[in-house]
Amino acid sequence: MDVNDIIKPENMVYSKTPVLTSTTMHYCPGCSHGTVHKLIAEVIDEMGIQEKTIGVSPVGCAVFAYNYVDIDWQQAAHGRAPAVATATKRLHPEKYVFTYQGDGDLASIGTAEIMHACNRGENIVVIFINNAIYGMTGGQMAPTTLLGMKTATTPYGRTKELHGSPLRITELLAQLEGTCYVTRQSVHNAASARKTKRAIRKAFENSALGKGTSFVEVVSTCNSGWKLSPVKANEWMVENMFPKYPVGDIKDL
C-alpha cells in the first residue's frame, strides 16, 4: 500500500490538538516541558474545558507556557503560583485552575505557598516538573538535585554534609490532609506519557468534584543542564532519578 493512500484525513489517528497553539516552543530539543504541555492541552481538549481553564505559569523556562496552550493564563512571582491559583479559584469557583511549576519554583522559593495551599485543600491542580536542576538560569543546584550530581553551583557534586539531602516534596505533600490525589509520573516513553495524561485528567476531574488539591509530579529531564543528549538524558533519568523519585500514585482518595 502506498504511503499516499494512507495519508488521508479519514485515516488520521493522531494530530496536534487545537488547544496547543502552532507557535514553535522555545524549549531545548527533547525537553520534557513540551511533552507535558501537550498532555495538558490534550486533557483540556478531551474534557471540553478550554473556555473554563485558567493556568498559572511559574518563573522558569515554563514562564512562556501562555504562548503555547491556548487557554487563559496568569503569571505569578517566583514560587507564588499556588497563592495566585488560590485566589483565582476562590473568585471563579466554576473554573478549572492549575499551576505549572518547576522544582526550583515549587520546592525552594515557593515551599510556603505550596505547603499551605495543599494544607488548605484548595481545589486546584498542581503540575510539578521535577528535573533536579534550575534549568533556565543555567543549571544550578535545586532542592531536588541528587546527591553526587554535578551542577553549576556544585561542581564537585552535591553532598549531604554541605547541601543536605534531595527534597522529596511530593511525599511531604501527600501527608497533608488537604491533598486528595498525589502522584509521580514521567514522560520519557509513550507508555509513561499516556499514564501521565490519565493522571492529569484525574487531577482535573478531582478539581471539578471539589475533593481538594491534586498534585501531579512529572519526573523530567533538563538535557541542556545535565549536559546530555535528549535520549541520553532520558536514560540517565531512568537510571538515577527513579531510585530516588519512584513513579506511581502516592495518595489517591
Binding site: 495519508i7 493522531y14 496536534k16 514522560v187 520519557h188 509513550a190
Partner: peptide, 26 residues
C-alpha cells in the same frame, strides 16, 4: 515507510508535537 504500524508512540512522546499519524487496516 513499509514498517510503520501507526501506533502513535512517536507522536505521543514528541515534545514539539510535530508528528501526525495515519493508520489503515489492510
Amino acid at each position: 515507510p513499509e514498517s510503520c504500524t501507526g501506533c502513535t508512540n512517536c507522536a505521543t512522546v514528541c515534545p514539539d508535537t510535530c508528528i501526525t499519524v495515519y493508520r489503515v487496516k489492510v
